[in-house]
Design a protein around this nucleic acid. Structure first.
Length: 473
DNA sequence: ATGTCC
């Protein structure tokens, strides 16, 4: 493929064949070779063929092959174009919440961290197929959650109204309608609020080790030596079922609207069609579910801290720094136009002064929370004015390097344990999480530095993991 | 990612 260098760490795939626009990928010399190892470039080209797509389709430095749009992809579409469930992903509103505290990491030795992990696991079900522990309560408010997101769970006693301003979209994407969601999706979702899930999802206790921008860090409530908690999860079986349902439905009706689908995974329909509108309504339900899911899990984590430390949540200053989606489609204004921006494995990162920032972060830009792999560092970034060229988006993590099966074959116990170092983890057998080993992922430092060098983002702080809770049986 | 194959 004729990838052309287009400035520092930027490569352009010029429009050709059925592509309507160019694709642009951000990689440095370390990450560039990975592009040849999977079908992610081909998948970006497919996205560039869809009606209404706006130049360019973007690949982030953590890009890798997915179902439809690659993970690490951004696709903006004009109102006369299409909406695609394959450009949002199976785990709708998979995302990350960073929680601050007034606690110092140095006060937490390994036995104390172990007690915290165990108590968190008592409260938060982890692993595939698990049901929530607040089952009756959350099933009762399920429809309200789908429509109103975090507000509905705050009213049910999970957290405080003040948390809303620290969540993208204030925890509710407008336009959700449960009538567009299948009974099956509702049956799966209604019992899963407050659950972590499996795969790359986690709850991590961290220490802020590096502050790159003291003024911004202070504005975000972060400081060196601080204990933080990060939650990475999404919409569980609810979003998964919605994506499955609508991939079938949109693929079936695409020909009726004269749309030639470039791949099976990129099922799409016109934004203004009945089916496209229905997908948006259903997707918004899953977005709201996932924001609420992270809110419930946060309150359970704070409760665990309170139990173990003997303090109230207020006394230890725990609240969200920010909660960001990295699998979502949203209406946003770019270059003076209203566009439906699909981000799949990409994080919104608005610059200082951007009017779409939440009021608390209006003049700083909101924190863009970027987790590393299990056992490696995570970052808080902020977008710059130059991020306009990525529709104000940055990467969503380190990005997978090996498939789950390849990781299971290649990575030994010794390699896994060496990579984890002193980091505590909850699984007894490394085989349960070897597909999540740091060696199965790209180097988060290379990924972040790629965008920093281009000037799209600035580092605010870096956190190192102390203890990580992953899904297990 | 996922009641990891209805």
């Amino acid at each position: 493929m004729e990838l052309k260098r287009d400035g520092l760490n930027r490569y352009r795939l010029p429009r050709h064949g059925k592509m309507r626009v160019d694709a642009v990928v951000y990689v440095n010399e370390h990450l560039l070779p990975y592009l040849r190892e999977d079908k992610s470039l081909e998948q970006l080209m497919h996205a560039a063929c869809l009606p209404g797509v706006v130049e360019p389709v973007i690949g982030m430095p953590d890009i890798h092959e997915g179902f439809g749009l690659p993970i690490g992809g951004v696709m903006a579409v004009a109102p006369d174009g299409v909406i695609s469930c394959g450009a949002v992903g199976m785990d709708i509103n998979c995302g990350v919440r960073l929680i601050r505290s007034d606690l110092l990491a140095r006060d937490f030795d390994k036995p104390l961290l172990r007690r915290l992990m165990e108590r968190i696991e008592d409260y938060v079900p982890t692993g595939v197929g698990k049901k929530g522990k607040h089952k009756g309560l959350t099933a009762h408010i399920f429809e309200d959650v789908a429509h109103r997101g975090v507000q509905a769970v705050i009213e049910a006693g999970f957290g405080a109204p003040g948390h809303l301003e620290y969540i993208e979209e204030e925890g509710c994407l407008p336009g959700a309608d449960i009538a567009a969601v299948s009974r099956e999706a509702c049956a799966r979702g209604s019992v899963q609020l407050g659950t972590l899930g499996g795969g790359n999802h986690f709850i991590e206790i961290q220490e802020v080790t590096d502050v790159y921008d003291p003024e911004l860090a202070a504005r975000f409530g972060l400081f060196r030596g601080q204990l933080t908690v990060m939650i990475h999860t999404g919409s569980r079986g609810f979003g998964h079922q919605i994506c499955t349902d609508y991939t079938k439905r949109l693929a079936a009706v695409a020909p009726k609207y004269g749309i030639e689908l470039p791949s099976k995974g990129l099922a799409a329909a016109p934004i203004d069609s009945r089916e496209g509108q229905d997908y948006y309504k259903a997707m918004a339900c899953a977005v709201n579910f996932a924001f609420a899911n992270r809110q419930i899990i946060m309150t359970d984590v704070v409760r665990a801290f309170g139990d173990v430390l003997g303090f109230s949540a207020e006394a230890i200053g725990m609240r969200p720094v920010y909660d960001v989606a990295h699998n979502i489609a949203k209406w946003e204004k770019h270059y003076g136009r209203r566009l439906l921006v699909h981000r799949k494995g990409a994080t919104r990162a608005l610059c200082a002064g951007h009017p779409a920032n939440p009021p608390v972060y209006r003049d700083t830009g909101h924190p863009a929370v970027v987790p590393g792999s299990m056992g490696t560092a995570s970052y808080v970034l902020v977008g710059t004015e130059k991020a306009a060229e990525t529709f104000f988006s940055v990467n969503h993590g380190a990005g997978r390097l090996l498939s789950r099966t390849a990781a299971e074959k290649k990575i030994t116990r010794e390699e896994f344990e060496r990579a984890m170092g002193e980091v505590l983890y909850n699984t007894r057998n490394y085989r349960e999480v070897v597909d999540e080993a740091p060696l199965a992922y790209k180097d988060i430092e290379q990924v972040v530095e790629t965008l920093v060098a281009v000037g799209i983002t600035k580092k605010v702080v870096r956190m190192r993991p102390l203890a990580v809770i992953k899904g297990k049986d």
